[in-house]
Design a protein around this nucleic acid. Structure first.
Lengths: 335, 335
DNA sequence: AATGATGATGGAATCGTTTCCATGAGCACT
DNA sequence: AGTGCTCATGGAAACGATTCCATCATCATT
């Protein structure tokens, strides 16, 4: 059943046709030194035979498979989809294939995935990490070339060293949140809630910091990765605290849940509750009312991360990309 | 700079520790025959050394790299994101890595991507194809194991043979459209438009067929892959044909564009225009009014496609998954 | 003219696995 | 006891590239 087909043309065939040794062919094709005449003969032979070097042979020899791995919590989330798109688009210009894995924000799955990557001798990886500092530290010790995107791993104590070396491409949540909260307080809001998902500890920390004296710990709630959990968290918060007048959703799935929960509970936006959502997705504008958001350059995050991991230059420092508050109609003055 | 690190443990190390030959180790680990005692010794040694077979060596030997490739037009489109998710989730259970490429609905990029895959000796690929029958035919002739998802390639003449062999996992657009159109005509609509994107010829064909006598060729418009183009197409149609009373958007990006264009042009949905959108995305419910949609099991499409390409069983036939009309509030009787 | 330096070149080793084949042991049957 | 069979087993040959190293030619310098 399988194609017995004609053997694929190897470097040996090219060498034979060109009347040179395989070493010479390899050198010519990878830009080494060779006489002009030889170079031409080799190139001729290669095109004549339509020779494509086998990545397999190369990889084995060099003890590393090409390409980049990309680990995201959920590819279905518009933010991560755009991040992937950025990575993909940068990787294409380097002609590097991208292997994608979904962690589901679960440390165990993440470790599994990384294990599989190691087995494949993948040595470059872009990850939106999920917590386990131990695992990541051991991965970089194992020689893995890691770049974090969107968030970095919380480095508790001993791993700090290894992990602080890891470059990351982040969004400037801190300033985004500060702007958003200033905007809300400017509208008179004092009781401001935060809808988070596990793995958003950095964002929650930034929220706490930006809230300062206004912070009410009871108003920050966590959801698990699923849509249902997000809905439950939002609905729970809205019911529990009738004094809530504004809420910030830590991501687009949380924002979606907030809109849904509000509608279900007859909480009117923005009349009864002001809402700001992290991440500007296309539907934010279609929503009624159109949602005020903190826009993040998701695609750029991916692109830059890919650049960091693909460019062989010197170790670059972590970079933080700006966010922007886009005011639409989901916030109103406190009544 | 690079980690000189301790050499990774190879099959040879295991063989040595177990006091057997490498061939035996290989056999034991891949389920070949061996005496109980030897098996135990080998397994012991393997766990003691924490041995992980190198995918590189295996791949070179077997002349094929493991894993699956997945080609989608746009990973940013919620439908394809869910499709990817389905593929990923099936592939994980087989412990196979997935390499994703974005074609942008462009035949040239698609061909490029496939070329790269060939170079990597990837021999299994799931694709949402973009047109060029010639290319796909030659790919399957080259021994590539192809499964089409969401749509198949239009097989013109000579390639028909090779391409009809290729299994595909599709959604039952035909019946979805028939239901939708019956619903609309039931509401009294006669002038029904269709918003398509290039690459949706199958869906357009189904629309034409289902419309029968009602078909007005001037009411089906095509957009290119971008959001802007989708908007332009929708706005253009709405302005050009004031007699239009209902429209079906061929995908969620088209639907989004339709909602936006309608709002911009003060066309009220559903009062002035009824709208049905292909693909049920989370925001369809958040939209105002909530959109009536033709739901597609995107994730299942991906999952099934992955099953087809990963399961080594006998060649399966093309399968078509059911769609469902979900009535919300974006359609009203013709006034 | 002898020596050294430079540069192009090809043979062979190497990467880690799977798989072909030969070997030898154990056993049953004549 | 000899023959034939079935098994477990290990050595060695692939797979296709890169790269070390030795070889040789060419040319400049003393």
């Amino acid at each position: 059943m399988s194609t017995p087909g004609p053997r694929r043309t190897t470097i040996k065939d090219v060498a034979e046709l060109a009347g040179v040794g395989v070493a010479t062919v390899s050198r010519v094709l990878s830009g080494g030194s060779a006489s002009a005449e030889t170079r031409e003969r080799v190139l001729d032979a290669a095109t004549k035979l339509d020779y494509r070097p086998s990545a397999l042979g190369r990889n084995l020899r060099q003890q590393r498979s090409g390409g980049v791995a990309l680990l995201v919590p959920d590819i279905t989330d518009g933010f991560y989809a755009r991040l992937c798109d950025g990575v993909l688009s940068c990787a294409r210009s380097y002609r590097e294939p991208v292997t994608i894995g979904v962690t589901g924000d679960d440390a165990e799955q993440e470790a599994d995935l990384v294990g599989g990557l190691l087995e494949q001798s993948m040595d470059r990886i872009i990850a939106v990490p999920t917590g386990d500092g131990e695992m990541w530290a051991s991965a970089v010790r194992a020689g893995l070339n890691v770049v974090f995107a969107d968030r970095r791993v919380w480095s508790p104590g001993q791993h700090a060293r290894a992990l602080d070396e890891v470059p990351a491409v982040l969004t400037d949540d801190r300033s985004g949140l500060r702007t958003a909260i200033e905007y809300l307080t400017g509208l008179g809001h004092r009781k401001i809630g935060f809808l988070a998902r596990q793995g958003m500890s950095h964002r929650v920390a930034a929220f706490r910091e930006a809230m300062g004296d206004l912070l009410d710990e009871d108003l920050v709630v966590f959801a698990r990765a699923s849509r249902d959990s997000a809905y439950a968290a939002a609905a729970g918060l809205f019911q529990r605290r009738a004094d809530l007048t504004a809420v910030i959703a830590g991501g687009n799935m949380l924002g979606e849940a907030a809109v849904l929960a509000a509608r279900e509970l007859y909480v009117r936006i923005p009349r009864d509750l002001s809402l700001i959502m992290f991440d500007d997705v296309p539907w934010a504008e279609l929503c009624s009312p159109p949602l005020t958001v903190i826009a993040q350059p998701a695609s750029d995050v991916g692109y830059r991360a890919a650049e960091l991991v693909l460019r062989h230059g010197r170790r670059p420092r972590t970079v933080s990309l700006p966010t922007e508050l886009i005011v639409r109609s989901s916030c109103a003055p406190r009544r």
